[in-house]
């Protein structure tokens, strides 16, 4: 299991487009991908779950990947969040 703490940086948080981009990217990895936020766990391969989480600009989260290709999944997840989804 690998994980990293991150801050959401794009102005509108995880709205529709970032959520679907992120879930789509994570779905390609066999490992499980979870976002821990405010004490809850969210399946990061699910757009709907990501929207439910209401992550905003400035929200502090932990990205956890567990299983096959966990390092690759974490690296890409971190890159997406840190780049603010190119917004």
């Amino acid at each position: 299991m690998v994980s990293k703490s991150l801050t959401i940086l794009n102005a509108q948080g995880f709205h529709m487009r970032p959520a679907s981009v992120f879930a789509g990217a994570m779905a390609k990895y066999p490992c499980s991908v979870t976002i821990k936020f405010k004490g809850n766990n969210y399946d990061a391969k699910s757009t709907l779950n990501l929207i439910v989480a209401c992550m905003k600009c400035g929200s502090e989260i932990e990205l956890v990947c567990d299983g096959n290709q966990e390092n690759e999944a974490l690296a890409q997840g971190v890159q997406l969040i840190e780049s603010g989804f190119g917004e």
Binding site: M16, A23, G24, K45, T47, L48
Partner: peptide
């Protein structure tokens, strides 16, 4: 157009 693509990602949501 992107909002429509978002609709596809809702219906294709693996959890759902």
């Amino acid at each position: 157009a992107e909002i429509m693509i978002g609709h596809i990602s809702i219906v294709k949501d693996p959890y759902l």
